[in-house]
């Protein structure tokens, strides 16, 4: 393990990583990159710092640049810090037809931030995303691995209230 890294998964998480690596043929452990990045991101408050990526490279015995190259390609990976609770609002056609813009504006107004921003208290980030494969129940938002469908401004208010009260953290290990 490189000395400069102040990061290490706990036993349980390492076991999960090793279990995943065994799913691919010998020498193909790079295939575990996406699953392990998901786990690493959850362990690091929802974003991939360069240190986190370096640690992942070490775990999979690949170069850090290979990790960065991949992490920067996929939209679910955040390369900048995010709030505790990331609200992802779908904006593609079918959701737009059912009022997703209004939902987005509502979240923005309630939290006093624009899409792509994090609230000053660090609690919430709003992100716009593309079709979540739930268009029959549009408008749709995603928070962590939860979907919330058939959204209305009323539902949005109820959810915000609940998340405020429980200090919602959307960065949980997606495998658990």
């Amino acid at each position: 393990m490189p000395e400069n890294l102040n990061i290490e998964f706990n036993r349980e998480t390492l076991d999960l990583v090793n279990k995943i690596i065994k799913r691919y043929p010998e020498g193909r452990q790079k295939s575990a990159l996406l699953p392990v990045l998901h786990i690493a991101q959850a362990e690091n408050q929802g974003w991939l710092s360069s240190e986190t990526m370096e640690y992942v490279a070490y775990l999979l015995d690949i170069q850090p640049i290979e990790v960065f190259e991949v992490a920067s390609f996929y939209s679910m990976f955040n390369l900048q810090p995010v709030g505790n609770c990331v609200i992802e609002v779908c904006q593609t056609g079918p959701c737009m037809l059912k009022g997703s813009e209004e939902i987005l504006v509502h979240f923005e107004n309630r939290l006093g931030i624009k899409s792509g921003e994090t609230s000053a208290d660090g609690k919430f980030t709003i992100k716009t995303v593309e079709c979540l494969a739930a268009c029959g129940n549009a408008p749709v938002i995603q928070v962590g691995t939860e979907y919330h469908e058939n959204l209305t401004t009323q539902k949005a208010d109820d959810l915000l209230e609940k998340w405020q009260a429980e200090n919602k953290n959307s960065h949980t290990n997606p495998y658990l």
Partner: peptide, 28 residues
């Protein structure tokens, strides 16, 4: 043996060769 593999937010990975690249741990 049968396994699930997650993507990470990229429509292009639905294209079958991009999917295979992604499954190999690369950009799609």
């Amino acid at each position: 043996d049968l396994y699930c593999q997650p993507g990470a937010g990229a429509y292009i990975c639905g294209e079958e060769t991009a999917l295979l690249e992604s499954l190999e741990g690369k950009r799609g």
